[in-house]
């Protein structure tokens, strides 16, 4: 009974995930597990395979080997059902610049099977949460980078997904907006699971419950942040230790 309960709470379960591009291995045997109400920070230097991992978790890229389950549904065998549970903000927000914010969000909601009767309330809620309530009539191309990023986040949460995957969500935001986005992520983390990739260490420390560090396609470190704090270890030292050391051995 207890085992069952904890299994039900697992929203993302990725096992032995690998991805090759030709002879180059971008991601090697990555395991990832996420429970409801947990925020996972995916850290790593540029080119570590964070984005590739996220693309595999969202069904944008088929893994060379391994399996992904979203809320118990196999992403590879039953992609359409599994994708219902996912909200994804890729590295470059997927915006149709010729549309207005409202038109765009309406399309995103319809695409994610939000009922016609619920669309307006879903849009209002998503806009309010992302702080873009008053720019619904404006063209996306006329918005600043920070607002475009927020529209991208609104698109990812409009269908109230169980799993929210954000690839570097705070890029291009000003300090105030970064604070707001972090508060939003913490709030989202209460009801759903969030995976967040970034290279900003303080962001992980202020937002995430758990951290995993990737380097050269391999998961090199994973820990609960509260435990790290208890042991008095700083994330920066750990990050340097795991990503610099391997880089040197890799080069020599």
């Amino acid at each position: 009974m207890f085992v069952n309960d904890s299994m039900l709470n697992v929203t993302v379960f990725a096992h032995n995930l690998s991805r090759n591009f030709g002879s180059h291995t971008a991601v090697r045997r990555v395991d990832l597990e996420l429970k409801r109400g947990e925020i996972l920070g995916l850290l790593g230097p540029n080119g570590a395979g964070k984005s590739t991992t996220m693309q595999m978790l969202t069904g944008n890229l088929a893994p060379t080997s391994g399996s992904v389950q979203i809320c118990g549904v196999d992403l590879l065998k039953n992609p359409r059902k599994a994708k219902c549970y996912i909200g994804y903000l890729p590295e470059n927000p997927p915006l149709y610049k010729e549309l207005t914010v409202d038109e765009y969000l309406q399309f995103a909601a319809r695409l994610h099977n939000v009922d016609l009767s619920r669309i307006n309330s879903a849009m209002t809620e998503a806009k309010q949460r992302c702080g873009i309530g008053d720019i619904g009539k404006r063209l996306i191309s006329a918005l600043s980078k920070g607002y475009q990023q927020r529209v991208g986040i609104a698109q990812a949460i409009i269908h109230q997904p169980e799993v929210i995957i954000l690839d570097e969500p705070s890029v291009g935001l000003d300090p105030n907006q970064i604070r707001e986005v972090r508060a939003l992520i913490r709030e989202l983390g209460k009801s759903c699971s969030v995976i967040l990739s970034t290279h900003i260490l303080p962001e992980v420390e202020s937002v995430c419950d758990r951290v995993q560090i990737m380097h050269q396609g391999v998961m090199v470190f994973g820990a609960v942040l509260a435990e790290l704090k208890q042991q008095g270890l700083s994330l920066e030292q750990i990050f340097e230790q795991f990503t610099l050391k391997n880089a040197h051995t890799g080069n020599s």
């Binding site: 944008n60 059902k81 994804y88 997927p94 915006l95 610049k97 695409l111 099977n113």
Partner: peptide, 14 residues
């Protein structure tokens, strides 16, 4: 080009 294909492919649409 605009990376919007990701939106379509991530959605529950075949």
């Amino acid at each position: 080009r605009n990376h919007t294909m990701v939106l379509l492919i991530s959605a529950p649409v075949s």
